[in-house]
Design a protein around this nucleic acid. Structure first.
Lengths: 184, 184
DNA sequence: AGATGCATGTAATAGGTTACATGATTCC
DNA sequence: GGAATCATGTAACCTATTACATGCATCT
């Protein structure tokens, strides 16, 4: 999936939270961020090197025990700048992965100015997609007969519709929450 | 995404429905199957050649107008066999793509024997995942304070929970429908 | 005659998985 | 002393995207 360097931003985002080793970063994909993104250490270690060469991160050596040398990476000012730029850029709705969820994950503060436009843009996108899917279903499956001769296709389309409905509802709930935060 | 040759099975599945050209197959990813899978012609054309070399498909030339030669591909007995084997194999729950949805898409007949075990297996998987996610949320966000200091993370986790809930409900609805079909 | 769509291909590049490879530390 | 985990790296391979490249057919 020749996406757009998303792993780079994930690593920057994680390093923005706290300094970590490549091993620590790898473990993040087993727990929290692993719910919706994956990466192996064989992808992470070389990328960290390239990111350091680009001066987005730096490392210091930590000696553990007698011999073992850990590399603890830290984000640089340049890296933080690039990360913030990425966070403020509207999520692209292309590939299999949902870049919006990825960005949202890194917005810690419910009062962040980034949130309202992010949510609104996503809501527009998913409402349009939902409308499109419903139209598709109506066109392809006007009656029960079509459903029974392309059963799997109908089920999959219905699933897509329900998924988009859930996505929309979730976004609307966030919008309401945000409005409530503003009153406080 | 070094997945497991899923595009091959999609092409076999589409060719199993009707004979088509590479161009036709490419267009499928703009409409029906495009709701949940993507492929470009630059990936499809070479793959069709490899599949033909492996004798899973064959082609005949159709002349359109004066000069233009179309290649209309057809699935072979060997190709159909491989496709059916894949369809009957439990979906793998690894990558970013949902292989189950892909297989389900190709099951036309609501009375297919494949359906009950497929649905049951998926239901088990998604119930386990839902339980896991709920546990994660309870652990990471025991109170409102944690939510307000990792707001995005909490939202994303909640989204995952709602998505899995919707998935489970959808599967349960299918189970009920299947039981109804058996009575008829 | 020109625009749009049909039709097929290759090349370069990027992203991602699996396997190979090594060694130290910590816990039991 | 042995097992599990920590820790880092490379190599081979596969998958996917973007760009390059070409030419015909149909419709207006």
């Amino acid at each position: 999936m020749a996406q757009k360097n998303r792993l780079k931003y994930i690593l920057l985002g994680l390093l923005n939270t706290k300094n970590q080793t490549g091993y620590d970063l790898t473990k993040s994909f087993d727990s929290d961020i692993g719910e919706f993104w994956n990466a192996n250490h064989s992808q992470i270690y070389p990328l960290l090197k390239r990111m350091e060469a680009a001066q987005l991160i730096s490392h210091r050596l930590i000696t553990v025990g007698q011999k073992l040398q850990k590399k603890e990476y830290a984000i640089t000012a340049k890296g933080r700048e690039q990360f913030m730029d990425w966070l403020a850029t509207p999520a692209e709705m292309d590939g299999a992965h949902d870049e919006f969820l990825l960005k949202l994950f890194f917005v810690d503060d419910p009062h962040s100015e980034l949130l309202p436009p992010m949510i609104r843009t996503q809501l527009g996108y998913h409402e349009a997609k939902l409308a499109h899917l419903k139209k598709q279903f109506a066109q392809k499956f006007p009656n029960q007969n079509q459903i029974l001769t392309s059963y799997g296709h109908a089920l999959v389309l219905r699933h897509a519709i329900e998924r988009e409905t859930g996505y929309r509802d979730w976004l609307q709930t966030i919008m309401r929450d945000l409005a409530r935060f503003e009153d406080e």
